[in-house]
Design a binder for these strands. Structure first.
Length: 224
DNA sequence: GAAACGATTATCT
DNA sequence: GATAATCGTTTCA
């Protein structure tokens, strides 16, 4: 349940800019909320993942503003999920520790020694759950994103690209997502009919679990 | 202390 | 479609 979001029209594609509503409207016609209620991110991770679709992610890393609408996510459970970084024999490790903490923090990790991937920690304290943010539809700062991406496209489709475009690094490990330089904010609600589900990408274990959610036909989705 | 490998991407054929 | 890049984390000896 996305808090206090308004219904949008039939258009499943996120707007190109704040001013271009294109079938979307802000809740109540007023300014968007400044933060989420705590309950939102503490629920079942599959529900949280699905409801993160349409939310905004705003980065002001390095004093440069970039933002986008979340259009692709993957849910990861704790020890019972063999694909999760929390599914280790040793339990809590320095890398996955933040996943066991309170919801609403950033779990950032390096993949293949090259890319930074960003997750929103979900679940109650002591229970490791997280949602990998895999795709954004850019809203603001496309010029900055392009610069960081060395003018390669797409800007934000795929977790590594997204991280690079928003300037996300390990420095944001454990960061609270209710304040700069990286904020998770309400956005648009996404109709159920426009949400697609699939197995998670790039995982070997539990590859068939239907834990990936994305907005059909939206810019910023890494794979159909 | 060593070794394997990964929630990926870009570039090549 | 195949593979290199590139390194921190985890696991095992």
């Amino acid at each position: 349940m996305v808090p206090d979001l308004l219904k949008r029209g039939d258009n499943a594609v996120a707007p190109r800019s704040k001013s271009d509503a294109g079938g979307f409207q802000w809740a109540g016609g007023a300014a968007p909320q400044s933060s989420f209620s705590r309950d939102f991110l503490s629920g079942p991770v599959l529900q949280v993942a699905r409801d993160l679709l349409g939310c905004r992610l705003v980065s002001t890393v390095g004093g440069r503003r970039t933002a986008g609408v979340i259009v692709e996510v993957e849910a990861y459970e704790g020890p019972e999920d063999p694909a999760s970084h929390a599914a280790t024999k040793t339990g809590i490790t320095p890398r996955n520790a933040v996943m066991f903490g309170p919801a609403g923090r950033a779990y950032v990790y390096r993949i293949y020694g090259v890319h930074w991937c960003f997750n929103v920690v979900s679940g109650a304290e002591g229970i490791a759950r997280a949602v990998l943010i895999r795709g954004l539809s850019p809203l603001e700062g496309e010029d900055v994103m392009g610069e960081r991406r060395h003018h390669r496209l797409p800007l934000c489709a795929g977790p590594g690209r997204l991280g690079e475009a928003l300037g996300i690094t390990g420095a944001l490990y454990g960061h609270r997502l209710d304040k700069p330089p990286l904020q998770l904010l309400p956005g648009w609600s996404v109709l159920e009919s426009t949400v697609a589900v699939s197995g998670r990408i790039g995982v070997r274990a539990a590859a068939d679990w239907p834990y990936r959610f994305y907005v059909r036909n939206a810019e910023g989705v890494s794979r159909r």
